[in-house]
Design a protein around this nucleic acid. Sequence first.
DNA 1: CGACGGCCTTGACGTGGGTCAAGCGCCTAG
DNA 2: CTAGGCGCTTGACCCACGTCAAGGCCGTCG
Lengths: 239, 239
Amino acid sequence: MLAHTQASQVHSETARAAAAALRGAQAAPSTLEGHLSRAPLRSFAAKEHVFTEGDARTNLYRLESGAVCLYKVMPDGRRQVLGFAYAGDLIGLGSSGEHQFNAQATKPAELRILPWSLVQRIARNDPEFGFKLYEAAAQELAAAHDLLLTTGQRTAMESLAAFLMAMARRGRRAKDGHVIIDLPMTRSDIGDFLGLTIETVSRTFTKLRQLRIIDLAQCTQVHVLDMDALEDLAQGESA
Amino acid sequence: MLAHTQASQVHSETARAAAAALRGAQAAPSTLEGHLSRAPLRSFAAKEHVFTEGDARTNLYRLESGAVCLYKVMPDGRRQVLGFAYAGDLIGLGSSGEHQFNAQATKPAELRILPWSLVQRIARNDPEFGFKLYEAAAQELAAAHDLLLTTGQRTAMESLAAFLMAMARRGRRAKDGHVIIDLPMTRSDIGDFLGLTIETVSRTFTKLRQLRIIDLAQCTQVHVLDMDALEDLAQGESA
DNA sequence: CGACGGCCTTGACGTGGGTCAAGCGCCTAG
DNA sequence: CTAGGCGCTTGACCCACGTCAAGGCCGTCG
């Protein structure tokens, strides 16, 4: 679910669940997907919090539309964004107890809400499901490790290029062949994600534009003009 | 298992397993602890790798003694240490497929080795166990998130102070009341962990010594003279 | 429609920490 | 006992990025 990692798994269940629904069977669903598809849907306004650090972990969420930013804050206000969630991503995984970070919609969002107690119940009855939960957590762990590589080792240019490469996987393709990336978050979110200031993020975007590697239609929409060059920059091929 | 997080859970099972063994019952063990306690033990020399990135995930390990460093490397050699494992920690959790980082003993170490296929088999039969796996992964995730806060936001001084605070929880107490920390890793490991160079780590140690907050008997042994001051520095009280 | 506030960009400047280089202490091997 | 190597420290220098400050562009609300 965190950026910097490949697309999520899940979703293969959707068709099966839909088929079951058509058959009119209202038997209690057994898969996570089954539960989620009939879980209540709640809307959140931009900037509204889904949960905050210290809240009891009462629910597991799945984002249906919109985007959500996950972050931690230090006492003095410095902020580290841990990742962004997009449609299809699970939000709220973590060891039992309290939430250890904040989740805030960066644009209007809709989420399915599943009580955590139910999740635990399913896990107790379905060993396969417990293992799926584990794999979901492991995937997030891998994403966090990737992000560590960028905040710990990469330069501003490398970080931003890697970020854009990751976002490009979610992007669409314009008729002229260029990949178009919509950024559903502010420069501040990006900066706090990559461990940079908004000024540095902005300047680095400008530099990429001057290098004719990207084009900025609006500040929230990136056209990738030269994906190979971007890839090179992400891997550390100098300037 | 990563530093920066509280002690591990597990271990409560040890007594029960021992009791079962005494009863002479040789029935197949059902808990992870049961399996681990009779799993083969292997020794690794300092600097020897337990596994490397790209290796198939064939085993789950538990460290019995020594210390292990977990890290990723970039193509050009830059390295990010993800964490350190100490006695009792599980190593090798992650989504199925290949290992996504390297694990290298920083000093002579002994590990119990459990085939991953067995872990999966247990998970399939024991729902409780699958959930435990999940919680272990979630714990590592929390540790990674904490580390992100330091590599992304903290200054060198804050990072090192936070690192020492975390290590102090594992430390012993001298007769004069000072906490003594043994560092089973090099400056280079610490630097790559915190996103700093070895020179900066060294200079920061020196600064802490000059401030009379710590004392360095040898470079691997830290005496904490003023835990409160260290705590303050970790939280960002300037200096 | 005009004014305000968020968000983004750009410039000038300062600095924390990276780089390069030298030297030291300790451990191990011969 | 001596030599070599590895890891640690320290100093001098420099640069990437942070800080501070000044606009500009929307989008929204009165």
